[in-house]
Design a protein around this nucleic acid. Sequence first.
DNA 1: ATGTCACTATGGTAGTGA
Length: 263
Amino acid sequence: MRIATWNINSVRARADRAVAWLERSGTDVLALQETKCTDAQFPHAVFEAAGYEVAHAGLNQWNGVAIVSRVGLEDVQVGFPEQPEFGADTPVVEARAIGATCGGVRVWSLYVPHGRSPQDPHYAYKLRWLAALREAAQGWAQADGAQVALVGDWNVIPYDTDVWDVTAFEGGTHVTQPERDAFFAFADAGYTEVTRVHLPQEGKYTYWDYQQLCFPKNKGLRIDFAYTSPALTARVTGASIDRDERKGKGASDHVPVVVDLEG
DNA sequence: ATGTCACTATGGTAGTGA
């Protein structure tokens, strides 16, 4: 079975591209982030025509997460227990997490808050969000044989070598110790970040900003990851990053990150 | 050349988020 995660940066702008990629790559389950639409606006028919079921959570033009599967899609859950709210006047639980069981694997599509700047309330929200997710995820992995995949855009640069020049992020988000601690805490909860296991090389970026010709200059970030519970980690046979998907007109600023499972 | 893109609301351009 092949699972992938992809921050699509508007599913309406790229539904055809996503389906073409699904078919070309032979992906069974795809977790999407930044769909940037409401459930009513989601292009369900495009995916269903290709033989995929869809579960989506989207409140407005911001955020939005989905799971697309051709191996079943059961027990859909929008948001995780104690997922923090954000908003100055009327706080809401944003559309940043959706879970479903696909082919026996509990898949979570996650869009971790950006943080904006270490001084911004969004940064504290990001840390709260990651801590709450870790609490929930620890519970999910408890059951013997539980096969859980936490995949998505983590908005954290775990190592200095996951960015073309870490000094460009001095004073910014993504590289602070609290963010990195929050990211690595999932390993303490029993999860393994399996893309690192299979792609340990430096410079394996998953995102290149649209601005400043970042992609041609290969000024990228590695911020899209897949944490798997012990029983699922044992099934992982490989991982890949489809860098070519960043090429050409109409690309997302992120590329798909793929995890292969035996069976 | 601030070498971008997608969204909304508006009204033909400005604001927001990344």
